[in-house]
Design a protein around this nucleic acid. Structure first.
Lengths: 297, 297
DNA sequence: CACCAACTTCAATTCTTCTGAAATTGATAA
DNA sequence: TTATCAATTTCAGAAGAATTGAAGTTGGTG
């Protein structure tokens, strides 16, 4: 069977014009090169050179030089694509993330991740936790970042960081003058605007307050706008409000259990692509650090 | 270094879905296949299958399956082109021939030659001996068929057959009633029309007759038309008149030395392409047989 | 015509790949 | 969960292929 390696040797000889130089170029002795050439000629079924001085090709030799070069080029390119993919330097990465992370965490993370992978194509969806889960489960997204939800179905949850809830109110609200964390009891008389995230808080006291609420808003921008107008207060994870909004204040809560776990959502039993695996490792290492700088600092 | 053979094994395994069947398909043991796969994964830098049951590929595996298939297909095709060319089943053949051979000999020869080589592209030029030589010398034609000329320059002559000259005259001419070959002396009073071929006859007697001639015609059709009109007689190689023309007669000459050598004209020092070499061998074997059937019979 | 450099040949060696047996693994059924 | 079974992997030795260095040819050159 003809080997690509034999074609490589032949092309080198054809380009050098003699066996000695070609032998040096491929790191073999002249004798090895000579034998390879002889074998190649036998397998192809005709002479490749006009004489045994290898400086001029036969018509067959010319054809083999053209075809051989092309095969070598194409093979090497394929291999380099395979390697680049295996080492996550090329490929595509589809991320589904809750908006707070997509907005406040992912930009610098992705920038650094892509610095060494300029050929990687990224898609980023910002959607809520339930939909993140769905996108990952269906394979539309390679990896998700979302709040914790009962692990099960086809997905798996790996915690990244936890994010305490805060109270959001107008910055001239009475509660701003409190010199201590806000307790649920402080909110007895307040008008609460519910939102997608705060519904996850388990505390009974909060649930009672929440039950009285008449408004639920899922979009953060709208929510903040309503708070700013004085329509009410709301409870949101710290990260969601990171960067602060004009005219509103974010106050600590006394209930230290009021927090959400944010983590990676991945498909179970389906191994990630090299890029996804690399991003997973990168995210696991870098996101907690970044978040603790942003929130803890 | 990654080998094409390893890709072949991988593709077979990916297509079989298990190592055992793939091993049978490639004629190795399962253990050899397993080791090849392991080595391939190491060299590429990532896993190709989701588990060690080889029934589902990773993203990397899918990429390698696509690229690998394409490489294998393309390599095998290249090799088969090289082999086909080496065995003269493909390629191009440019033949330059004097018209008599091109008309009377080459059609059946080429037909039989191409019967087993339907992919070979042939070009046929019919031109005179001097130009045949020139076309072969310049490399425009791979092989020539022409009368003998001093060997030298870049070309070599190999005889194929010899072709006696005949006298061509109107079929009601007095000479037709001769019951013996025509002698040069019979032509003393005749009007001779010269042509390119007859000028090569060396006999002194002929040269004297020829010297008196006032007309020279190089085109055979025109020449025959003139003879038929009764403008004069001419001397032509037998083959040129093969098949006979209406209204004219071809008479044997007494001078048995009046003949031309027809043979192959090839470039010296430049090896023929496989197709040209095959045609050369075929022509050398078949043309003399065919011509002796046509003329000698 | 002799010389020289390039190439080829040959037998021994080295490197690679393959095999068969044994161990391990993972899925399936008890 | 454990037992079972087939597939896969591992391992060491065997077989095979490629490589080497030395000796032998060949073809071109002064």
């Amino acid at each position: 069977m003809i080997k690509l390696e034999a074609l490589r040797v032949f092309v080198t000889v054809a380009e050098s014009g003699n066996i000695k130089d070609a032998a040096d170029a491929v790191g073999r002795t002249a004798s090895a090169v000579s034998m390879t050439l002889k074998q190649l000629e036998e397998e192809i079924g005709g002479p490749l050179f006009q004489t045994d001085r290898k400086n001029s090709l036969t018509a067959l030799g010319n054809l083999m030089l053209d075809l051989g070069r092309e095969q070598i080029r194409s093979f090497d390119k394929s291999v380099s694509i395979m390697r680049a993919f295996a080492h996550s330097r090329i490929g595509s990465l589809s991320i589904a993330s809750v908006p707070s992370v997509a907005t406040n965490v992912l930009p610098p993370i992705l920038q650094r991740f892509l610095e060494t992978r300029p050929q990687v194509q990224v898609e980023l969806f910002d959607i809520d936790t339930a939909q993140v889960r769905r996108m990952v489960e269906s394979g539309v997204a390679d990896i998700g970042i979302a709040g914790e939800s009962r692990t099960g179905g086809g997905v798996e949850f790996t915690p990244l960081f936890s994010d305490r809830f805060k109270l959001l109110c107008k910055d001239d609200h009475d509660l701003c003058r409190l010199d201590r964390p806000v307790e649920w009891s402080d909110l007895k008389a307040a008008t609460l605007i519910r939102n997608g995230a705060s519904d996850r808080i388990e505390a009974e006291d909060y649930k009672q307050i929440s039950a009285r609420s008449l408004i639920t808003v899922y979009n953060v921008t709208s929510l903040v706008a309503m708070v700013k107008t004085g329509l009410g207060l709301t409870i949101l994870p710290s990260l969601t409000m990171y960067g602060a909004y004009e005219g509103v204040a974010a106050l600590d809560l006394g209930d230290t259990t009021a927090s959400r776990q944010v983590g990676l959502v991945e498909r179970r039993d389906v191994p990630p692509s090299p890029v996804a695996a690399a991003f997973r490792a990168f995210a696991l290492k870098e996101i907690p650090v970044l978040v603790s700088e942003q929130l803890g600092g």
